[in-house]
Amino acid sequence: MTNVRAEVRITGRVQGVWFRQSTKNTAERYGVSGWCRNNPDGSVEAIFEGKEAAVKLVVEWCKEGPNLARVDDVRVGWEQPTGEFEHFFIR
């Protein structure tokens, strides 16, 4: 199975609602590496790397997020994976 990299930006009510920790938990559940962080504009940014099916599941999860979140938009850019991450972390 092919490895992929998704660069994702999530907008809506996504800060202060456990979005980053929930993203980390979801990524770890599917064996996806990378990172996520809050941006000054109120969005959450993430990089996901791993098996294509697993990364797609995490990206789909981002469209809903945790219970307290309200996701308005998810923008995804697909790139070549770099293999630079051993695990998933919060920045």
Rank of each mutant, 00 (worst) to 15 (best):
M1E: 10
N3I: 07
N3L: 09
V4Q: 03
E7C: 08
E7S: 14
V8H: 01
V8F: 01
R9W: 08
R9Q: 07
I10G: 00
T11F: 08
G12Y: 03
G12D: 12
G12S: 05
G12P: 12
R13I: 13
V14I: 07
V17W: 10
W18F: 05
F19E: 09
F19I: 06
F19M: 11
F19P: 09
R20E: 10
R20P: 11
Q21G: 13
S22V: 14
S22W: 09
T23D: 05
K24M: 12
K24C: 08
K24G: 00
N25F: 08
N25R: 14
T26P: 02
T26K: 08
T26H: 08
A27I: 07
A27F: 00
A27T: 05
E28A: 11
E28T: 11
R29S: 06
R29N: 11
R29Q: 11
Y30S: 05
V32A: 12
V32N: 02
S33R: 07
S33I: 07
S33E: 05
G34S: 01
G34E: 05
W35S: 00
C36I: 04
N38G: 02
N38Q: 07
N39L: 14
N39Y: 01
G42N: 08
S43N: 03
V44P: 01
V44A: 00
A46C: 08
A46T: 07
A46W: 06
A46Y: 12
I47G: 04
F48T: 03
E49F: 04
G50Y: 09
G50D: 07
G50F: 04
K51P: 12
E52D: 15
E52W: 05
E52P: 01
A53F: 06
A54L: 05
V55K: 11
K56E: 15
K56V: 09
K56Y: 09
L57C: 15
L57P: 01
V58Y: 08
V58A: 05
V58H: 12
V59R: 08
V59M: 14
V59Q: 11
E60F: 01
E60K: 11
W61C: 12
C62R: 09
C62P: 03
K63S: 04
K63I: 04
G65D: 10
G65Q: 06
G65Y: 06
P66V: 00
N67G: 12
N67K: 15
N67S: 13
N67T: 15
L68F: 11
L68E: 06
L68Q: 13
R70I: 15
R70L: 14
D72I: 02
D72E: 13
D72C: 01
D73I: 02
D73M: 06
V74S: 02
R75S: 06
R75Q: 15
R75L: 14
G77S: 13
W78V: 01
E79T: 13
Q80P: 09
Q80F: 00
P81T: 12
P81G: 10
T82D: 04
T82W: 08
T82E: 12
T82Y: 06
G83D: 01
G83F: 05
E84S: 02
E84Q: 06
F85T: 01
F85H: 03
E86L: 11
E86N: 15
H87C: 03
H87N: 10
H87R: 13
F88Q: 10
F88V: 00
F88R: 02
F88S: 02
F88I: 00
F89Y: 14
F89H: 14
F89A: 12
F89L: 11
I90W: 03
R91Y: 07
